[in-house]
Design a protein around this nucleic acid. Sequence first.
DNA 1: TCTGGGGTCCTAGGACCC
DNA 2: TCTGGGGTCCTAGGACCC
Length: 422
Amino acid sequence: MPTYALVDANNFYATCEKIFDPSLVDVPLVVLSNNDGCIVARSAEAKILGIPMAAPMHQWKGFCAKHGVAIKSSNYTLYGDMSARMLAILQKLCPEVESYSIDESFLKLDGFSDVTAMGHEIRQTLQQHIKVTCGVGIGPSKTLAKFANHIAKKHPEYGGVFSVQGVTEAVFEKLMASYSAGEVWGVGRQLSKRLAADGIETVLDLSRCDAKAIHQRYGVVLAKTVRELRGEACISFEDIAAPKQQIISSRSFATCLIDFQSIRAAVSHHLSRAAEKLRAQNSVCSHVYVMINTNRFREQDPQYRQTILTPLPHPSADTSVLMKAAMAGLRKGFVAGFRYHKCGVILGEIGQADGQQTDLFATVDDPKRLRLMGLMDSINKHQGAGTLHVASTQLSDAWHMRANNRSPRYTTCWNEFPVAYA
DNA sequence: TCTGGGGTCCTAGGACCC
DNA sequence: TCTGGGGTCCTAGGACCC
């Protein structure tokens, strides 16, 4: 039977902020989404105050001021770099690591004799090297490792490490009975509602369901979850990150926009970013989607949302080829008279650049243009994003996002390094 | 005034073909 | 007058995740 561990950093974004700013120690802290819109991370102190996840910031402004809650805009440059350090440490400790998200990794612990001891070693090393506290959950399937991680965080008596195999069946069943089915990885709001209506309330209830019956009624995904909860590993382990099948760049605007010109600048910016990501994984794409939306929360406004697909004449990674398609899509989808709130670009039908079919009639990207793109990417990488850009992104900056409280990029920017005074 | 962004996978249903 | 049905492919949309 395989053994998986899930290592998950506690309050990751909030922790990253606290590591570099001593004035934030013991202070309740929230980190905001792009545009300073929602609360996406809370420090332990902020959780104790009862600030919920994903709450709109404007509803909590007064509360935060009253309780001395520190507020930070998100600083993905910093979190991304800390995440890479965390991953590097895990890879030193264990040969098989799957990076699952910015603050979580699955590890395969087959062959380790004492997996709980290994869990504690991982925890201590991360704490010592980068001051990140994490929880470790261990189990015979990914779903159980996830659930074990949840227990590790909720029950301090386990010291941050919980292994399903480390307790008796009776103890584990009692734990499963004490959590609602919605806590399980893969069971979201809609499913838990339907499950509850069928009398399946707790994790234990779900684990005891007949997988075939679940498949019929709820689909193949939940049937897998049920089997995973019983210790049967159905979700595979992926050490090597697969190239993305879809690349998205989108963002809401700081204020509503009504003019084509501003939105065109924003779409142009997103297209450039997405194309850069596409080239970074050495891919080409065949579909360019442009989406534009009004603000769905403003019910008094007329609503409009549109996603327009424009196929490319040939698979490409050339910004100018993609841009032409995106602009054609935008012209098709843009309707004057609405108050637009968000736009974005999705690249689809992605394939490997060097595996392209080159039969007699197929066209491919111009190699000269591709060298130019490579040069542009390299300059932007070393001199800062957006140093070189296509002209249309500059036609308007009305769409630029808010980030009023961003911390310095302590670990990746020479002039933003933390300074220590002796 | 102000409500995230970036992904994956599955499924239902339409289009098309014979 | 009676006007098929089954298979396959594709896409949009929905569910989930962090």
